[in-house]
Amino acid sequence: MTEEPLTGGNNATEVVRVGDTVRRARDAGAAFAARVLARLESADYPHAPRHLGIDEQGRDILTFVPGTTTDHPAQRAPGAYAAGGRMLRELHEATAGHVLAAGRECVIHGDPGPFNTIFRQGLPVAFIDWSSCRPGDRLEDLGYMAWTWCILSQAGVPPVEQAGHLRELRDGYGPVEAARLLDAMEGAQSRIVDAETANLDNPTLTAARRHHAEAAVAWATADRAFVRRHRALLLSALR
C-alpha cells in the first residue's frame, strides 16, 4: 500500500500513513508507549490511538486518528481548552496507581502540546506521539500543557485572552492551586531552555537539529518572560 508521510507532530521520528494505520519508527520509548496504549485501550480511554503491533519493517502500527493539529487560538472552537484539560485529567486518572506508574502519581504523556493533539472542527479528540510518556506527576504534564496551549508571547494574542484560555484549561482539568500551576509552567519552560541550550553546540547533532534547538530556546525564553511579566494577571484569572 502507498505510504503517505505525516507531519504536524513534535518529533523527528519518521511517521507515515498506510491506509487506516500509522507506521512509526520505534525509538527508545516505543516499548513502554505500547504498554501504556494497551492500558488506555483496556480502560476505554478514547483520546489515544490504539497500538496494533509491529510491521515487517519493525515499525509500530497505530490506528490513524483523522484531524489536524493547531498552533493558534483562532483554529480552536469554544470549549476546546476545557476539553483538552479533561482529556489530560482522564489520562492521569486511567493510569493512577497502575503498575506502569512505577510508584509515581500516574503515567504522564510527557509532551501534550497542541502540536501533539488532534483536533476536529476545532475541538481536541486525541493525543498523539506517545514516545515521551513515562511515570511522573500530574502537575508536570499539566504545566507543560498549560504553557504550550495557552501562552503565545509572540503571536499578538492579548494577554487577557491568554489568561482566559488558561483558566478554561485549568477548570477543565480540575482544581489546581493557581501559584503551583504557574510555577509548573515556568518549570516546563526552564527545562526546555536548559535541554536545548545543551544541544546548541553539540557536534553530534545535525545543523537542522541545532537550528531547532536555537528556535526552542528563543520560544521558551520569551514565553517564560511573558508568564513572569503577567503573573498577577494570570493568578487573578485562575482564582
Rank of each mutant, 00 (worst) to 15 (best):
A126I: 12
R76A: 08
A222D: 13
R210W: 05
A208E: 12
A96Q: 14
L182E: 02
I61D: 02
G29L: 08
P5A: 11
T13Q: 11
F64L: 14
L6C: 07
E196N: 06
P203A: 01
A195E: 08
P46Q: 03
F32N: 01
I118F: 07
P158G: 07
F64I: 11
L182R: 02
V65N: 08
V193R: 07
P73K: 04
M145I: 03
L205F: 00
D223S: 07
R229L: 13
G97M: 06
L52H: 02
E177D: 13
G8W: 01
L166E: 09
H212D: 05
T68F: 05
A80G: 06
L123E: 10
A28N: 05
V227Q: 06
Q121M: 13
R17P: 08
A12H: 12
H98M: 03
D137P: 01
W147P: 04
G9L: 05
A82F: 01
L6D: 04
H98F: 04
E90G: 08
L235M: 14
G122V: 09
G156C: 12
H230K: 02
A213I: 02
L6I: 14
D137K: 05
L181W: 04
I192W: 01
Y144K: 11
R209H: 09
Y144G: 03
D201L: 08
E196P: 00
C133R: 03
R229K: 14
C133L: 03
F32E: 05
D129Q: 06
A163C: 09
H211W: 00
L234N: 02
N202H: 00
A82S: 14
R224T: 10
H98A: 14
V125T: 14
H98K: 06
N199Y: 00
T95G: 05
C150K: 01
A31V: 11
G172K: 00
Q57S: 13
P66T: 09
A208R: 03
P124H: 10
V157G: 10
V99G: 04
I108V: 15
G53M: 06
R228V: 14
I151E: 09
D71A: 14
E3D: 13
E177S: 01
I54T: 15
